[in-house]
Structures are given as structure tokens and as C-alpha cells.
């Protein structure tokens, strides 16, 4: 099974046997991989009932829930790692979501599409329309992404909140790229965070 590159990085970075919460776990691919490779105790939260069904059929422990609403019900530090993959930009309040992630998890992995990527900028600046790209392929009226941010925006938020960056990775064409001019070059980013 080949994981999306950001998920592969997460899989490599999580210690064996860790307690992991995958928020927005989809069909459970990452959880299944983490369980098989690293023997982690993985739990998931997913809003879509059909995805939850599939996770249950895979033997995974997944709760149907809305991260915006249901994360508050988890006790403090109940997980070693909380993962929010390509979902922060769909939450109602990304800043509050970040607080919740770092409350329930000792560490958090957060990945998000970078709206500062040059294709985005070019699409908006030259085309005059909200860009539709390979990394963000959905029209403005259909997209679940309600908060568009750049890597710089995200760094500002982390600084404002006093969140520690334990690691960060930038991706273009499904490969890790260097951090140089990442705000121009990266299609999406992955951060390992703690507080």
C-alpha cells in the first residue's frame, strides 16, 4: 500500500506503540498503516458514515463525529499524537482547532494545502479567478475548504499561539522539497507541533 507522501512522513515519525488519534481519518488507510507498521494504538474520528463503516470493517476503532464539535469531549493529553491531515482548512475555527489538537494530544501533526503556491498566486493574479489546481482541484463553490491560508499565515498563527514546531515538511509533485521559498514552491505542508 502506498500512502500519500505527507502520511508516509507521519508514519515514519510516530514512535512505536504510541496512542494516536487520526481526526478526519477517511477510510482508515493511515490508521491501518500505522497499526501494521508501528504497532500504534490508533483511534479515528470521521464525519462520513460510509467511511466509518469501512473503518469498522477493517477492524479499526473509529467514531463518527465532527471534529469542530466532538473533540472537546476527549480528556486532556489522552493521546500521544493527534493527526489532522488536510483538514484544518475545513474547520470552522482553525485557531481553536489547533488548541484542541494540542490539548488532546501531546504532539500534533497538521497538514494543509498552501494557498501561497505560485500556481495559486498566478491563477488569482493573472486569471482573476479563484484558482483550481492539482492540489486544490475543487471550484470555490463546491470546496470544503473554508479558510485558505499560506505557509506564512500558518507560521504567524503558530507564533501568536506560542506553539512549538518540532518539525516541518513541504511537498510539491508528491515529493518532499527543501524549505527554501516553500511559501512559493510547496503545494502543501506538514507540521509536527507541540506546546
Amino acid at each position: 500500500m502506498s500512502l500519500r507522501p505527507d502520511l508516509a512522513v507521519i508514519a515514519q515519525s510516530i514512535p512505536r506503540g504510541a496512542r494516536v488519534l487520526d481526526i478526519g481519518c477517511g477510510d482508515g488507510s493511515l490508521m491501518a498503516e500505522l497499526t501494521a507498521l508501528s504497532g500504534v494504538d490508533a483511534r479515528g474520528m470521521e464525519i462520513d458514515a460510509e467511511h466509518v463503516e469501512r473503518c469498522v470493517a477493517r477492524g479499526l476503532s473509529v467514531i463518527q463525529g465532527d471534529a469542530d464539535r466532538d473533540l472537546v469531549d476527549y480528556p486532556d493529553k489522552s493521546f500521544d499524537v493527534a493527526i489532522l491531515s488536510q483538514t484544518l482548512q475545513t474547520t470552522r475555527r482553525p485557531d481553536l482547532m489547533l488548541d484542541q489538537l494540542l490539548r488532546v494530544g501531546r504532539q500534533a501533526f497538521v497538514s494543509f494545502p498552501n494557498f501561497g503556491h505560485w500556481r495559486m498566486r498566478a491563477g488569482l493574479a493573472l486569471g482573476g479567478r479563484m484558482p483550481v489546481t492539482r492540489a486544490m482541484p475543487v471550484t470555490w463553490y463546491e470546496t470544503a475548504n473554508i479558510h485558505h491560508m499560506t505557509i506564512k499565515d500558518f507560521n504567524d498563527l503558530l507564533a501568536l499561539k506560542g506553539v512549538n514546531v518540532e518539525g516541518c515538511w513541504f511537498f510539491a509533485h508528491d515529493a518532499v522539497i527543501s524549505s527554501a521559498s516553500a511559501n512559493w514552491r510547496a503545494e502543501y505542508a506538514l507540521y509536527q507541533l507541540s506546546r
Binding site: 483511534r43 463518527q64 463525529g65 480528556p75
Partner: peptide, 21 residues
């Protein structure tokens, strides 16, 4: 059901939950 699920989570038990239509 969610009330039970929260309690199981708090107890650290492996739990799945789905609301079906």
C-alpha cells in the same frame, strides 16, 4: 450513544461509533 462513547474514550477503551440513517 455518544454519551457512552465519550465515557469509553475517557476510559481508553477501543470504540467505534456510527449513526446510521
Amino acid at each position: 450513544s455518544r454519551h457512552v462513547v465519550h465515557a469509553l474514550n475517557a476510559a481508553g477503551a477501543p470504540v467505534s461509533f456510527v449513526e446510521l440513517s
